[in-house]
């Protein structure tokens, strides 16, 4: 259904793009309004709800004791899961995660893992035997486009406010989860010859291809993923990297840096 509507809107969005405009009046480099609420699920060790325009994503972080992976015996484990709940869109169906959901979950996971956001060494309880496993569960509540950026945002916000429940296991005091980095994902949609950040649902449906870039606070890139069936030129990729880094720095300062110590 949304596919048909998007096709009808394609010309409209293209014509606006040519004039340098977007459907909702934003500039090409503007995000929609962002709202972050943390600690809203008290049963979870950490949680955050991010509202990006009308897109709503809720992330809950749970910690459990488990066994480490054989190749990293002294490190905690990160497991990320993302669900596109049927509540979020008429296009989502119940059942096991489809490839889109799996892909997004893995991109969020990679951003956190590769940037070294969590100090995994501090999650080791007994080397080779027990470590904390961090479950990051992303629940998409309402899909109005760009779920992936909202998910990255919510996941890192939730992690930054997570408490490690040591008391529950009788291994000391509860401490905030040790964080080393704040990775942020910024997605750009290629529409015609233009790249625009934070695509809305319609823009997402008609765009040729999307590129998600997860960058760290030092400006380095921790993860990238191209999604969609149209090619990109090298120049476009490099342009997207610069744009994504710039936007990530901006958003990090605005919304996340205050969260770090709060825990």
């Amino acid at each position: 259904m949304s596919e048909v509507i998007a096709t009808l809107k394609k010309d409209y969005i293209y014509n606006l793009m040519v004039k340098g405009k977007r459907q909702d009046g934003r500039g090409f480099k503007d995000f929609r309004d962002i709202k972050i609420e943390t600690n809203i699920i008290t049963k979870a060790e950490g949680s955050a709800k991010v509202t990006l325009g009308d897109t709503q994503v809720l992330v809950g972080v749970k910690l459990q004791i488990g066994t480490p992976f054989p190749d990293s015996l002294d490190e905690g484990v990160i497991i990320t899961n993302l669900e596109l709940n049927p509540i979020a869109s008429p296009d989502f169906e119940p059942g096991p995660p489809k490839e889109e959901a799996i892909e997004m979950a893995r991109v969020v996971d990679r951003g956190i893992r590769e940037s070294g956001a969590i100090d995994l060494k501090k999650l080791c309880v007994t080397v080779g035997e027990s470590v904390w496993i961090v479950f990051i569960d992303v629940h998409v509540l309402n899909d109005e486009g760009n779920i992936i950026d909202a998910s990255c945002f919510a996941a890192i916000a939730a992690l930054m406010t997570t408490i490690v429940p040591n008391e529950q296991q009788g291994i000391g005091d509860n401490v905030p989860l040790a964080m080393k980095e704040i990775p942020l994902g910024v997605t750009l949609a290629k529409i015609g010859s233009k790249l625009m950040v934070d695509p809305s649902l319609d823009e997402e449906a008609i765009c040729e291809t999307k590129l998600t870039i997860v960058s760290s606070s030092d400006g380095s890139v921790a993860g990238m993923q191209k999604m969609g069936s149209v090619s990109l030129t090298e120049a476009e990729v490099l342009e997207a990297i610069d744009l994504a880094r710039e936007k990530a720095t901006e958003l990090r300062e605005l919304y996340l840096e205050g969260l770090v110590r709060k825990g």
Binding site: R110, R113, E114, S115, G116, L211, S216, G219, S220, V221, A222, G223, M224, Q225, K226, S231, L232, T233, E234, V237, L238, I241, D242, R245
Partner: peptide, 30 residues
């Protein structure tokens, strides 16, 4: 690790990345 797929004209059709790279390193890698 930065896997790339491209057409004969050098248009990028697959791009993934994980790890830690600066934009200069990405440029050199491409």
């Amino acid at each position: 690790d930065f896997p790339v797929a491209m057409t004969q004209d050098g248009e990028i059709t697959l791009l993934q990345m994980d790890g830690h790279l600066t934009s200069e390193e990405i440029k050199k890698g491409l």
